[in-house]
Amino acid sequence: MDALTQALVDILRPLGITEPVLQFMLVNAILGISIYLTLYTGMFSLANAGFMAIGAYAGVAATQFLGMPLWLGLIIGMAVAGIISLPIGLPVLRLKDIYLAIATIGFGEVVIILLLNFDEIISSIATALQGERVRIRLLEGARGIKGIPKSTETWMLFAFLALLMFLLWRLHKSRLGRAMAAIREDERAAANMGINVVYVKNVVFVMSAVVAASAGVFSAHLTRIISPGAYGFDKAVDILSFAVLGGTSTWVGPIVGGLVMGALPEVLRFLNDLRGVFIGLILLGVILFLPGGLINPAGVRLLLRRARRALRRRADAAERSSHAAP
């Protein structure tokens, strides 16, 4: 597996993609799946960054404070995010598009504020219980939790991503997958067809949260430090851009979007000051000129059809001219 990774990195190296870059690209791909699930169901949720934070902190708490191995931290991080997502999803998912987006942005901000003040909150509870001033330092607020071992390996990310892709493939062929698509197309019609809309939406929301949390656990064990600021509104928009760039018509889209958005800042390093402008231009260009994103079978089919038609026309013209010649 390591040799395989090494070979892949050797191929990508001329582009500026080293192994750590590849690792963050894979984390992004997982995040892409997380936002794909909700978008595919027609839910414009921006809660992914918040759940990523929850996953990262819960996972790190397990590995750092309780000395658990990474795989157990991963499971705990995902479980905690899943449990928290349920009571959030139930009320919030009644909201639609912009309102849902704003409510979930609010959720993300509240998560950050709570993480920033977690130590203070438990300190004041402890102070109240003990009757004397207690200062507990656990999550360290903005200082961040430092010295996290870099235990995420590239092969783990590949394996986990492959597992997710397999599950997605299965999902699309399942009843739940069809219900998700139906809700996106027309929620009322879906309900009339007997789909339990509330149930499906909540299940998808929990799945999305759990996947985002896994990305949080993996990335926390890559960056060696986690602090709440890294999971704010900017991160939420970043994750959204994976889906926008890749397109959401198939599950391949957000994965590719995540990979590309992870690679772009590194590949474009040679542009120096112009790097940010270029990334902005690429993103806006895709939104404007490739409405379905980079990966869009319908768009490709359309393009192919146009190309075929153009070719045929040229062939016809050529034939005609060859007829006319003699």
Binding site: I98, A101, V244, G280, L283, L284, I287, P291
Partner: peptide
């Protein structure tokens, strides 16, 4: 929604 997203892209630029 895509108009909203495109405005985010424009802001970035």
């Amino acid at each position: 929604m895509s108009q909203l997203i495109s405005s985010i892209g424009a802001a970035l630029l």
